[in-house]
């Protein structure tokens, strides 16, 4: 209810939003919160837009984030940040991956990718733009862009006053959720995301 916080992770099918939100929500449970997380599978996986919604607090009812309610929106893609603008709480913050993925109408030449999204959103809300793909590539595993963005989200929630998050054993939760040979690179990705400016 009143102390409930909400996070949206939005992107395009196949970007790894689901793993990132799984790790985040397990961390929130470890911090003692009541947590609900909702995601949409099915048709939306085939290159459509995807969203994972997380709400946490003392007692959470709805599993879905309402308009004007998200404390943080982590967007894995630039245009998806725009699609969800109405869901950001006035005063809330954006983390946007500086990565443009054209959708089918754009690929077909039937529409243009909107210009100036980052400038527009930055002028309206506290926005941190991260080139998670470049960071992940530097770490030697492009797939870890999702964990870079997760690191940035955890930092944003901590800065917004969520002191419980810093004490969570994120490395342990990562180890539980990714294959052994990818644990180290994902731990590094999380650190990079937390540090990224």
């Amino acid at each position: 209810m009143s102390n409930t916080k909400a996070i949206l992770l939005v992107g395009v099918g196949g970007q790894g939003t689901i793993l990132a939100s799984k790790i985040l929500s397990e961390g929130l449970v470890a911090a003692g919160y009541d947590v609900k997380m909702s995601e949409i599978h099915g048709m939306s996986q085939r290159g459509g837009n995807v969203s994972t919604q997380i709400r946490y607090g003392d007692k959470v009812y709805s599993p879905i984030v309402g308009k004007g309610e998200a404390d943080v929106i982590v967007s894995f893609e630039v245009m998806e940040a725009l699609r969800w603008v109405e869901f950001l709480k006035p005063g809330g913050g954006y983390i946007i991956n500086d990565n443009e993925i054209p959708s089918v109408p754009i690929l077909m030449g039937a529409a243009k990718y909107p210009e100036g999204i980052l400038a527009d959103l930055s002028a309206k809300a506290r926005t941190r733009i991260i080139d998670a793909n470049a960071i992940a590539e530097k770490l030697g595993n492009k797939q870890t862009q999702n964990i870079v963005l997760l690191g940035a989200a955890i930092r944003a929630l901590s800065e917004a006053g969520d002191t419980a998050l810093a004490g969570i054993d994120w490395d342990g939760i990562i180890a539980k959720n990714v294959k052994e040979k990818f644990v180290d690179v994902n731990k590094k990705a999380l650190q990079e995301g937390m540090a990224a400016n």
Binding site: V12, G13, M43, S44, Q45, R46, G47, G48, N49, M79, E80, L82, R83, V85, S103, V104, P105, I106, A111, K112, Y113, P114, G116, I117, D120, L121, K124
Partner: peptide, 10 residues
């Protein structure tokens, strides 16, 4: 926002 996102159908 005055900008409009392009739909992203599957």
């Amino acid at each position: 926002s005055e900008l409009a996102p392009v739909p992203r159908p599957p």
